Simulated assay, not measured.
Amino acid sequence: MYEPLWWLGMVTSFIVYSCVAVVGALFLIFWAVKRSGHRKMLVYIAICSLMGSLTVISVKAVAIALKLSFSESNQFIYVQTWFFIFVVIICCLVQLNYLNKALDSFNTAVVSPVYYVMFTILTILANMIMYKDWVSQSATQIATQLCGFVTIVAGTFLLHKTNTSSTDRHAESAPTPPPPPPPPDQICVQG
């Protein structure tokens, strides 16, 4: 019963996507992070999003395996189930590591919306490739989903922009306090 799910993952288009995602993440980890990871938030976010899209696909496969196992068709006898569990663990560890680095290095108010948008785009793309959900949908359903997604992305951008603008205005309107006087042992008396 689990075989059809495994064959969805073995489709050429999904293998190409998975390879591009893994190679892209490895390139970012071993080359881009060393060069500009501490200066450019998108390096960390791209790693998290690429690994996140593979995590979501694998978690969905594990959830289907659990559902089938609870309905008296043990899926844990198949190597494929353990493969998906392994992918979930590895991708989650990489994702959490680089998300923490992004949050440590950059403002959370900036990291969160950018991560949300990039993660969502890549997850939708991976789902479209592996599960082919769009094949059974009408053009109206696809257009409605795209409009909803664009609305969410635009709303996230506007919230971020409004938050940044109000923070900047508040910082500009506050007077800067005078510098503190030097400590007494550093005061020089001219004589």
Rank of each mutant, 00 (worst) to 15 (best):
T151E: 00
T81W: 00
L54Q: 13
A46P: 12
F27N: 15
L158A: 10
F119V: 15
L99H: 09
F14V: 04
A61Q: 00
A126Y: 05
A139E: 10
I152V: 09
L26I: 03
Q141P: 06
E72P: 08
C48Q: 01
C92G: 15
L125W: 13
L103I: 07
V111F: 06
F106N: 09
I121R: 07
F106T: 02
E72D: 14
V117N: 14
Q95I: 03
N74Q: 14
K101V: 07
M51K: 08
I121K: 06
S49Q: 07
F83H: 07
K34N: 02
H38Q: 13
A32L: 01
A174P: 07
V87P: 03
V62I: 13
L103K: 02
S138D: 12
A21L: 02
I57K: 05
V117S: 09
T162I: 04
L122Q: 10
V117T: 10
L66S: 14
C19L: 09
Q186S: 15
L42Q: 04
F14N: 05
D133H: 08
I45T: 11
P4K: 04
N100H: 07
P178E: 08
V11Y: 06
T144G: 14
S69M: 14
Y78Q: 04
T156H: 14
Q137A: 13
L146D: 06
V23R: 14
Q137C: 10
F84Y: 01
Q190N: 09
V33N: 00
G191M: 12
V33L: 05
Q95V: 09
A139M: 14
Q190R: 08
F27K: 08
M128S: 14
H38K: 09
N100A: 11
L5Q: 09
P183D: 06
P181S: 15
I152P: 04
H170I: 02
S165D: 07
Y131W: 03
S112D: 15
W82M: 02
P177G: 10
P175T: 01
P4H: 01
F157I: 14
T156W: 14
F27P: 05
N163I: 13
P179E: 11
L125A: 08
F14H: 04
T162E: 10
I121Y: 12
D185C: 02
A109Y: 01
A126D: 06
G148A: 09
